[in-house]
Structure formats: C-alpha cells, structure tokens
Amino acid sequence: MNQDSQLIQRYYRFELSEEELAAFQKRLATDTEFSTLVAQYHQSQKTAHDFYQSAEDTDRQKRWEKSLENSPSHSLEQPKNIFSWQRIAASILFLIGVGMLPFLLSDHETHNLQDLLAEAKALQPQEEWSTLRGAPSDNLEQALMADAHALYQSEDYSAALQLLNKVNDTSAYYSEAILFTALCHFHQNDHTAFLSLTENLDANVSPVIEKRLLWYRGIVYLELGETEKARAIFKQLTDQDISMGSKGHQLLQRLKAIEK
C-alpha cells in the first residue's frame, strides 16, 4: 500500500493531526490524482458501510436523530424570524434618522449629504482577506475563514456571520473575523449591530483593523444623519498618518462645505 493510501486510511481513522488534516484538505482541492484516489476509497468504504448496516446500527442512528431533534440547535429548522429585535431596533433607528433629516437640514443640504454618502461609499477601501493572500498555510481556522469569505462574496451575510462567530479571540484570524463581521452588519444595513460591535473593540483587535472600522463607523453615522459624530471620525482619521487619512480629509472638506 502506498503512502497516499495510508494517508487516506489515517484520515478515515481520525488519526491526522490538525496540520496533517489541513494539508490533506489542501491536496484534496488541488491534486486531481489524489482526489480521485480519495473518491475511490470513499466509494469502497461506503459500499462496505451500507452492506454492514444492521438493524442495531439503524436503531442507534434513529436514537441519535431523535436526541438531536430535541436539542436547542433544532430551532435552526424554524423559519427565520424576520422581526428579530436587532432588525426592529435597526429599522427604528434608520427611520428616525431618515425622518429627522428634513427637520435638521434644508432640502439642499439633504441632497448634498446624500451625495456625500454616495461619495464616501465609493471611497471605501476594497477589503481583502489576508487569510487568503500569499502562500497558503492551511489550517482548520483558515478553512473556516475561506468558507466565510465565499459566503461573504456571494452576499450571504447571515451565513458568513455564523461562521465568523466561531473564530475565538485568541485566534490569529480574530481581527480579520471582527472586520468582516462588522462588514456583514454594514452590508445588511444593521447599523445597531455594527455600532455595538465596533464601539468597544477589545485589545485583541489589531490597530489597523480598528482604523478601518473607524472609517465605516463614519459612513454609518453619515447614513444615520449624525454628522457631528461622522465629522469627529473623519477628523480623527485625517489626523492620523494612515492610508485612509487623505480620503478622510476629502470627506471632511466636503462635510464642512455642506454645513456652511
């Protein structure tokens, strides 16, 4: 038996270390010959597995299935409640923001503010997933991040959020997970969740990510019509020597012009 066959057998025996498992996954995705071998092994396993299913095995699996039906995760099968409190809160906040704008600003100013918002959104950086950049050094968390990335790209933000929530604060990908969690909220127009997440970032979030999130906070405040807060943020970005500074300055100037 060759090394690849042994590796596949070890995979099915739950014997691979985290590193070996990550390497296995990588080969499965990139090496056609290897993936064919895995498929052949899988087919043989399945044929034997199906044949060896006894009434006892079927009963056990039914018991497992029943016990899972009673577990809290079963609630996943219930239809999504579109009136969750976060959505209601975000909608109220949004409606208040939109409703208050005509009273706070003249028609001309409202129009300009909307222009500015569009400008700010156009200026926002193209966010990259650094976990996917360069030579891949796969591990399970990176695989999780890659899946989250795919969901984010396909604009399935709810599903991406579920994966991103699994990254814990000791992980090397924690900062990036926080950034993209916030961006999922941002794209979902869930301002409440976005602001609550980015308000008190913990110490594990890198300063670079913190500054990027500040930029988006500015946009969200613009969207909510809270120009004071937006101005304070763009001022902070301009004062700091970071790549977003010039864009922040640009927005600040435009904001000043609107408010004159």
Binding site: S71, S73, L76, D147, L151, D156, Q162, L163
Partner: peptide, 12 residues
Amino acid sequence: TWEELAPPLTAL
C-alpha cells in the same frame, strides 16, 4: 457537538 457544528454545517 451538534450544537457546535449545526450553524457552520447549516451555513454550508
């Protein structure tokens, strides 16, 4: 384990 894996598996 199911409670842990249900969200990512459902997402997948």
